[in-house]
Simulated scan of single mutants.
Amino acid sequence: TGRYPARAKAMTLPLLVLRPDDAGRVAMVHATGFPDPWSPAAFRDLLSESTTLGLGIEQHGGLAGFVLVQTVAGEADILTIATDPALKRTGIARQLLGGLMSRLGERGISRITLDVAEDNTAARRLYEGLGFTEDGRRPGYYTTGRDIPAAAILMSRDLSV
């Protein structure tokens, strides 16, 4: 009986490929985790691009989480990832990223990159646990919703190994 309610670990759920008509659901989940959320129209545009791959996980009839990546010249860059706040720390993000990396590797993508706020310790631990390494920093990159700007930590992982 700790301070926080126990959270059940997520079972492995099927990944779905997101389509432009999923944009509203994606925007709703994104808005729960970011101080300056993207609009449904922005997600619709991204999901309409041939270079964008979006994966999601549904649970209990709703979108539990998603990840969007843009591919170019044999590499992929994670644009954004979000999990329903009620399902954080249940393995949804780890499952999304694992499925994403597997699919990208099958498509011949050799490297995946991302940036994460320096003060987002949980996300940084997740990425490091999945084999991402730090490549550099962008000082003061994240400003929205912060009193003090946070550096962006640039990370990548080789998918060809």
Rank of each mutant, 00 (worst) to 15 (best):
E128V: 12
G99K: 01
T90L: 02
G129P: 11
T71D: 01
L126C: 07
Y127M: 11
Q95Y: 06
I112A: 04
R107N: 04
P85M: 08
V69G: 08
L130P: 09
D119M: 06
L68W: 12
R138M: 11
G98S: 10
V67T: 14
F66N: 04
L100H: 03
T71S: 00
G74P: 04
R138V: 12
F132V: 08
I92K: 02
R137D: 12
E118I: 10
F66D: 08
L97F: 13
Q95G: 02
T143G: 00
D135Q: 15
R107I: 01
R103S: 10
D77W: 12
G108V: 07
E118V: 07
G129N: 11
D119N: 12
A82Y: 11
F66A: 06
L96V: 09
L87Y: 05
L68Q: 09
D115T: 15
T90M: 13
K88I: 14
A82G: 06
S102H: 14
T144R: 15
I112C: 11
G74A: 07
G98E: 13
D135C: 15
L104P: 00
T113W: 08
I78T: 02
A86K: 12
G91C: 11
D84Y: 03
R94F: 09
A122M: 02
K88L: 14
G105C: 05
A93H: 12
L68G: 07
A82L: 09
L114N: 05
I78P: 02
L96A: 02
L97Q: 05
L126S: 04
L87F: 08
N120S: 06
A73G: 07
R125N: 10
L97D: 02
T143H: 04
A86R: 14
I109S: 00
R89P: 00
R137E: 12
D77N: 12
D115C: 13
A93Y: 14
M101R: 05
A82I: 11
G140S: 13
A73Q: 10
G136F: 13
K88D: 03
L114H: 06
T121I: 06
E128Y: 03
T71H: 00
G136V: 13
V116T: 08
A73R: 10
G108W: 05
Y127W: 10
E128D: 07
A73W: 14
L114A: 09
G91E: 06
T80R: 05
M101D: 03
I78L: 11
V67S: 00
V116N: 01
E106P: 03
R94V: 09
D84E: 10
